[in-house]
Design a protein around this nucleic acid. Structure first.
Lengths: 341, 341
DNA sequence: TTACTTTAGGAAAAGGTTTTCGTGATTTTT
DNA sequence: AAAAATCACGAAAACCTTTTCCTAAAGTAA
């Protein structure tokens, strides 16, 4: 660590510690010339203030925490990118925690954060989070907290999300309009509001178009990729095979592609699919994948901006922002209508 | 932040602050029963030690810094994943910084880190880093520093890399064996050792097989994606169009796919391509993309492990580890031999 | 000139934890 | 039984900044 501290700097300048500190913080109590001298010397001695002493005294860490399920995931990587951009502008540091979709990890991460290491927290729930005690205790502790994308339903808190219900509805309707009669829905978790909202959109679209809802076409997937693959295989192997799939999450669509490739099922001829996804290569896939694309980067930007507004003004007691951004449906070949005969 | 501190805890227990502190740190100076009492009360009062006070006193932050060019990048996302896993096991926090391939950002990030906010740094250089003054000053400050993947050549420091030269050689040789006669190389930056090593492998493979090296087939790409696309278009539009492309980095291969799609160039018939990549969808692309895949997650794990061994034992003055992992070449359709006539 | 205000800076406390050094009390050794 | 060692805990310094309160000196008003 940088070895020079205020004391040494003060000694070198023939000033007191407090004056030097004030000079560095540009206090009106210090004359302009003195400030200049101090700045110069600080530079020359390569002075870097000790962040811990500063944080201890000021009760500010200049750090935010970001808690997400995983990072090797296009959506979250883009969101983090947006978050980092805003944080960097504001001069804040970003501490990242991965829960790996594990509720226990989430709880222990939150407990750590309760120690005051960060001035605010951005969070996206993990897929098996049911109880929210840890979340409310974080909120009650007074640390500003903003959820993005995967938000808790049972809790009153600021959120940044997308139009999940509408997107699910539109995606399903799109499949129907492409000729699908039996559409399966691949859900990430029945605990997550995003999954449920997307699925509700799916259900309502079926209803609107007079298609029956079939329990065996709604697949609750797990966090185990191999198991998901086997679920998908079972789905596609059955005698009542679906002719369309609405995937609520990117990785499940990828699994579908692998399975259809292996089983020799042709997309979109035998099976159409549309999925939530931020894949940059969606249009390069074979066939190109129709997607609902969330504005992941902006979600990160907005969530961070909201968090900082809460951190800076302390006026967040009586006000709870809920921001909803729009996703984009991009039709590609995986859901193209086939002109038969 | 958690409102209870040692003082309150001590008061509630009728003990001194120091005894409580020792009890919590499981000191031999405190009796077993007292420890139990303290632990119990700490739990009951929901005590969380103030991390700044602790860091200030111990001169340890229990935090590492990770400095990378970008996060929305499969390689780095996977590497971070590996790093996080190790850090979490060790009870360390991870501070992430993105340079966005910008040298100025890199320098200012390092300057911040010099303040002692972290106990160690993991780093991958940005593409236009030439001078290394900021890196050596960080190293000289005594903060353990490990580079991964993109490492500085002019500096003696611990690194975790892959067999870039061999991979470049094998990839190029593979294209040659698939029938390519004019192979272009898409380079990320001539400042980066990984780029240069990969290119040297390319050059030596050409040499070995008696193919001429042509300057106009070696493209130095930039950080501007659109400009890269135009470079690639120019390359493929020329009368001396290459019949093979060795891409040293994933995003350039993706750009090639977009360009060929737009120009109607058929892969692998008219053009073959192989690229460094960690795309999970490589085999689902149209056509499937031949890749050299780096063990990104393991690179993260190894780099973090090395860093922690440096942080824990202070025996890193006289020893510099350089670890090299192997990449895997996966042949797919984008570089398949075409049986003509 | 006296009284009051402003200016420029210093002393010291506070923030919460860790750690060194004591110190009585109890136990062990001779 | 006296001396030594161990035990269990407390007092206080140290880590480095920030900030409140003070104080000389200089300037201004009356």
């Amino acid at each position: 660590m940088s070895n020079t501290n205020l004391k040494q700097l003060a000694a070198a300048l023939g000033l007191s510690i407090s004056s030097v500190s004030k000079a560095l913080r540009d206090s009106y109590e210090i004359s302009t010339e003195t400030k200049k001298r101090v700045l110069e010397m600080a530079n020359r001695m390569n002075y870097q203030p000790n962040p811990f002493a500063s944080s201890l005294r000021r009760k500010k860490s200049a750090t935010i925490g970001v808690v997400i399920p995983e990072i090797a995931n296009n959506f979250f990587a883009l969101a983090i990118d947006g978050i980092q951009m805003v944080a960097q502008q504001k001069g804040y540091h970003v501490l990242t925690y991965l829960t790996h979709e594990n509720h226990t990890n989430e709880v222990s991460t939150i407990r750590h954060l309760l120690g005051g290491r960060v001035d605010g927290v951005l969070m996206s729930l993990c897929r098996d989070t049911q109880s929210i005690d840890h979340l409310s205790s974080l909120q009650e502790s007074g640390i500003p907290l903003v959820f993005f994308d995967r938000v808790p339903e049972q809790m009153s808190c600021p959120t940044v999300t997308t139009d999940d219900y509408e997107s699910g509805f539109r995606a399903t309707e799109h499949l129907i309009q492409s000729g699908c009669k039996r559409i399966a829905c691949l859900s990430l978790s029945h605990y997550l509001s995003i999954s449920n909202k997307r699925m509700n959109g799916y259900l309502d679209a079926l209803k609107k178009h007079g298609l029956p809802v079939e329990k065996e076409l709604i697949i609750q997937c797990t966090n185990d990729n191999e198991y998901n693959v086997s679920l998908i295989k079972t789905l596609l192997r059955g005698r009542k095979r679906p002719d369309g799939i609405f995937s609520t999450v990117e990785k499940l669509a990828i699994s579908v592609y692998y399975v259809t490739q292996e089983m020799g099922i042709q997309i979109p001829k035998q099976l159409k699919i549309i999925s939530f996804s931020n894949l940059r290569t969606a249009s390069l896939l074979n066939p190109s994948l129709s997607t609902i694309t969330q504005p992941a980067f902006e979600i990160g930007v907005e969530a961070a901006t909201l968090l900082f507004s809460m951190i800076e003004k302390k006026t967040f007691g009586n006000r709870i922002d809920k921001l909803e951004l729009k996703s984009t449906l991009i039709e590609r070949n995986s859901s193209a209508r086939i002109i038969k005969d």
